[in-house]
């Protein structure tokens, strides 16, 4: 255990925790936006997988991570349109249609991977970008300011989303549609348009989350996300539908993941207990959810399709 409590290992662990937290954060922020407008999307994991695979395939073929990211985002947006069409236009039961999107993403990404790639070949992970001056600060610089651009972007999106939700006209519409769509409709807010926009933006972020996950290690495999999308949905509840709360939950998850991995790497966790230890992040998230259950009110119209006059 003493090997863990060294300067190098601790800073490396925190830096890793922030990296592991980022895909969850991006996906959960996107899901927050959708849920605040009243749409529950359980297809996040499938969209992340499709975002990850498309990013991987394009990066593998072109050598450009940037192009891969853009395609991953685009695929997320397309799947967002499909999700919105089912949830908003067709008024499908949101939980079921979301699971359908998840299974579709899981199966298609696997099929495309086996058909077009086969053996997983590595692509270049996104390089770290050192923030001038800040990256030189002892310990802090190593942990927070020597990360890749998508990680900085994810954390910038936290205050940005909070600002949009609480200080803009669009945010007011989103909150109104999520709490009382009939009232919003009566004052001329288009429930359909608002929900389409939030769902497509949310799924775009899920696609970006998949691309981010992929580019952390530069490798794709079947079911790469390992249910990260479902954890992201749970983190929205954990964070009480608030961007800062979602970030806290994501960081908690990232820290536990990084610590478990580091302990495994250092042999602190014996091989025989490694599988059990790997469940720790999920277990802790569930425990935190149980502890927080009922303390916060979810958007009143969450999961309910809107029918004018119904």
């Amino acid at each position: 255990m003493s090997a863990f409590f060294t300067y190098a290992i601790l800073t490396a662990t925190i830096a890793s925790a922030i990296q592991y937290a980022t895909p969850f954060l991006l996906a959960a922020l996107g899901e927050t936006l959708g849920q605040r407008s009243g749409v529950l999307n359980l297809g996040v994991d499938g969209i992340m997988l499709m975002g990850a695979f498309s990013c991987y395939y394009v990066a593998l073929q072109t050598g450009s991570d940037l192009l891969g990211i853009l395609v991953g985002i685009g695929v997320g947006a397309v799947l967002g349109l499909i999700t919105a069409f089912m949830s908003v236009t067709l008024r499908a039961q949101q939980g079921i249609s979301g699971i359908g999107v998840y299974i579709f993403g899981l199966g298609l990404s696997d099929l495309l991977f086996v058909r077009f790639v086969g053996t997983p070949l590595p692509v270049n992970p996104l390089p770290a970008v050192n923030i001038p001056l800040l990256s030189k600060i002892p310990a802090v610089g190593r942990m927070f300011f020597q990360q890749n651009l998508l990680i900085y972007l994810a954390f910038v999106l936290v205050p940005a989303l909070a600002f949009v939700l609480y200080h803009t006209n669009f945010g007011t519409k989103v909150l109104a549609v999520g709490e009382n769509p009939a009232a919003a409709d009566s004052v001329g807010i288009s429930v359909t348009r608002t929900r389409y926009v939030t769902v497509v933006l949310g799924c775009t972020m899920a696609g970006l989350a998949g691309a981010t996950l992929l580019l952390l290690d530069g490798i794709f495999q079947e079911n790469l996300t390992q249910s990260a999308g479902f954890i992201a949905v749970a983190l929205v509840y954990f964070g009480a539908w608030r961007p800062a709360g979602v970030m806290t939950g994501s960081l908690l998850y990232g820290v536990v993941t990084a610590v478990v991995l580091q302990w495994k790497s250092l042999g602190i966790i014996p091989t025989s207990a490694a599988d059990l230890a790997a469940t720790a992040p999920a277990v802790i998230t569930v425990l935190a959810l149980v502890a927080l259950a009922g303390r916060f009110k979810q958007p009143a119209a969450l999961g309910k399709p809107y029918v004018r006059g119904a």
Partner: peptide, 26 residues
Amino acid sequence: VHVSFTGSFSDVSLMASAAKAYVADG
């Protein structure tokens, strides 16, 4: 010499994460 086992013959991602942890550890 740090040694770890991922618990899987096919999890390339987990092995990449372990490699990353070792590089970060020096």
